[in-house]
């Protein structure tokens, strides 16, 4: 137990975890409804979309890149799937999910090729593809919503697992959260146990050394964008399973939220740093802030101010914490 505690306090995620705990305590004092299983499931369910995209963003950030096109990719996938389901109402869920992921992967592949073959800086390449794809989709759909999804599809979104009594009701874990967890496990396995995953860290740490060690930088880079695109596709499915309709405008501009989640969770936009656990904390922090602001009855006019301050404080604390740690390390070196 002591060892676990020691590991935890040593880990990079400690400051964000602390902030979540502090926020949670404050919110619970004002509104006890906050700390219930059903509330937790509700907020995680609506934030699972952002969570899945953030988990896709994580490897991109670790490799030293950035993907601003997640917003256009998720919109593209959602619209493609909506049109597909309208045309083929007799299809099944596996085909629908696979379709979304393939479309997302293709969008990611384009980004990957622009970055690796034409050496366009990632932020620019993905800004370009985002503008183009988003404009094309909105031009094509005119922003009209797509509804009338088949029943088998919508009922898939209502699946719940287990039965936990909470606040006088029995709630189960929604399938959207299962998606999030599965994606989290997959990302963790890839980053930790595959050659590709180690390559991602290596490329993000230092491209030259990674090349010398023998990693194929192009392949690693292309992979992270494809992975991000694929997960954006999965996020599209998750979204439609929640809101049951497709609004092509919903996700314009969401890429900054997604990046914020990953970075709040300790990933560095400079590359080389980031963990799945941290990203999960980022998702929870974002969800808690959004949910908490309403629960503690902050006036809507002040919500953005409070949110901005919390983000600034969190990242500042994180940075200062790391600096202190670094200073301590140097100190030890000097003593020896």
């Amino acid at each position: 137990m002591q060892k676990v505690w020691k590991n935890l306090t040593k880990s990079k995620e400690i400051s964000i975890l602390a902030i979540i705990v502090v926020l949670a305590v404050c919110i619970t004092i004002v509104n006890p409804n906050f700390l219930t299983v059903s509330n937790f499931f509700d907020i995680m369910r609506s934030n699972s979309i952002y969570g899945i995209m953030a988990l896709g963003m994580l490897p991109v950030l670790i490799s030293g890149g950035i993907d601003l096109s997640v917003s256009s990719t998720i919109t593209l996938c959602a619209v493609v799937m909506g049109k597909f389901l309208q045309a083929n109402p007799g299809s099944n869920i596996v085909v629908a999910i696979l379709l979304c992921m393939v479309v997302g992967a293709l969008a990611g592949l384009v980004n990957g090729l622009l970055v690796t073959k034409f050496h366009i800086p990632p932020i620019v390449a993905t800004l370009g593809t985002q503008t183009i794809v988003m404009a094309a989709v909105l031009f094509y759909t005119n922003g009209m919503w797509i509804s009338g999804m088949p029943d088998w599809f919508l009922s898939f979104g209502d699946i719940q697992f287990g039965a936990i009594p909470s606040a006088g009701k029995v709630v189960g874990m929604p399938i959207q959260i299962l998606f999030l967890i599965l994606v989290g496990i997959a990302t963790w396995l890839i980053l930790k146990y595959t050659l590709m995953g180690r390559g991602i860290y290596a490329v993000g740490g230092n491209v030259q050394s990674a090349t010398r060690v023998g990693y194929n930088v192009s392949r690693v880079t292309t992979f992270v964008y494809i992975y991000s695109g694929t997960l954006a596709g999965l996020a599209a499915v998750t979204d439609i399973l929640i809101v049951k309709q497709i609004d092509p405008n919903t996700f314009s501009g969401c890429e900054l939220d997604v990046i914020a989640i990953a970075v709040l969770g300790g990933a560095s936009v400079m590359g080389g740093i980031g963990t799945v656990f941290g990203t999960f904390l980022g998702i929870i922090l974002m969800a808690v802030i959004k949910n908490g602001l309403v629960l503690v009855r902050v006036s809507s006019y002040w919500q953005k101010v409070v949110m901005g301050i919390i983000i600034l404080v969190t990242i500042s604390v994180d940075v200062i914490n790391r600096r202190i740690e670094k200073a301590r390390l140097v100190h030890v070196d000097v003593e020896e």
């Binding site: 953005k304 101010v305 901005g308 940075v319």
Partner: peptide
């Protein structure tokens, strides 16, 4: 403080917008 510029300005973007709204 040494925070990444992108992140700081993302936070201040929200903050300024919020102040304007207030």
């Amino acid at each position: 403080v040494g925070v990444t510029a992108m992140l700081v300005t993302l936070g201040t973007k929200l903050l300024f917008e919020g102040l304007g709204l207030v």
